[in-house]
Amino acid sequence: MSLFWRIFLTNAAILIAAIVALALGPVTVSTPIARKEAVILGAGLVVMLVVNAVILRLTLRPLQRLARTMTTTDLLKPTQRPTVAGSGEIADLIVAHNSMLDRLEAERAASSGRALSAQEAERQRVAQELHDEVGQSLTAVLLELKRVADIVPEPVRGVVHEVQETTRSTLDEVRRIARRLRPGVLEELGLVSALKALTAEFTTGDLTVDGRFDHQLPSLDRESELVLYRVAQEGLTNIARHARARHATVELYRARSGIDLTVIDDGKGLGRSTEGAGIRGMRERALLVGAHLVLKAGAHGGTELRLRIPAVRRKPSVPRAADHAR
């Protein structure tokens, strides 16, 4: 029965019962109204209002739960769908809301996948240009500086050597940026080797990063491997930039339903800071492969990032260069 007919028929039944009671019962109303008659009419009105309030409360309660769910829904944080309760239009509304969320999440995942694929392609293009154009130009400058250092007088030679060192440092920085943009080691040697290289890259004088990796991992497709690598990379980048940490740990190990990646630091923690573009980007990547990402305060201070990704059978692919080397 629809909501309209439930309310209409309930009020109609109450009014009919009141009219029958007045018509057939001993209760009468005089003019002016007597105190006893006023009490009886007031009691009847109270009963009618209470019955209406209870019925409306029970009927509209699923709508209130749905409204609370709608105000807290975040497409980057999938939650359990509201339970279909009530009947008629209310149940249909909850079903339509759940279907809308499913459709929006699917569309968001598809659009994010296209955007991230375009981003990865652009990263590869920029990394290739840095390596081929800027890297080669700086290498040529280094060779020219070496030739100049061999022929200039001794007082000037020290200045040329300083320029050489500056150019060499710039070349190393360009190569480091290119490696971050395009993790070639991920394609050539696999996920564990890529994460080892990543932890070594972030280990500096102010920050020590330890890696603990399970070598007996379930099969993963290339997209899942890239998500794991990028989430670890973004997590370490946030630690290096914002956490003021001295020590961080990256762990990758087998779980019952797939693979768990954790990035833990001993820094200042999350505090009351809101999620920035980096964290939201990690959530978008997690949605692409059906993974679950949790960011919370660490057990002993700092921050703990955990990504649980389901195991997927690896698709047949071209053998890696390292496989031929073996």
Rank of each mutant, 00 (worst) to 15 (best):
I7V: 04
L9E: 00
T10S: 12
T10M: 12
A17Y: 00
V20T: 08
A21C: 11
L22A: 02
G25K: 02
T31L: 07
P32D: 08
A34P: 00
K36T: 06
A38T: 09
V39I: 13
V39W: 06
A43D: 11
V46D: 07
V51C: 06
L56Y: 09
L60P: 05
L63I: 13
R68G: 01
T73G: 03
D74P: 01
T79L: 05
Q80Y: 08
Q80I: 08
R81H: 06
G86C: 07
G86Q: 10
G88L: 06
A91K: 13
A96R: 14
S99E: 13
D102T: 14
R103S: 09
A109Q: 11
A110C: 11
S112T: 13
L116K: 06
S117E: 12
S117A: 11
A118V: 04
E120P: 01
E120D: 10
V134Y: 00
Q136R: 15
S137V: 03
L138K: 06
R147Y: 06
A149Y: 00
A149W: 02
I151D: 07
V152E: 02
P153H: 03
R157E: 09
G158I: 07
H161E: 14
E162K: 10
Q164W: 09
T170W: 06
E173D: 15
R182E: 10
P183E: 01
P183N: 02
V185T: 15
L186E: 01
G190C: 14
A194I: 03
A194D: 01
A197I: 03
T204K: 05
H215W: 13
Q216Y: 13
Q216G: 13
P218L: 05
S219F: 05
S224E: 00
R230K: 08
R241M: 12
A245Y: 02
R246T: 12
H247I: 04
H247E: 08
T249M: 13
T249S: 15
E251Q: 12
R256H: 10
I259E: 02
T262I: 11
G271H: 08
G271A: 05
S273G: 13
G276V: 14
R285A: 08
A286Y: 15
L293P: 02
L295M: 14
R306L: 11
L307Q: 03
L307R: 04
P319H: 02
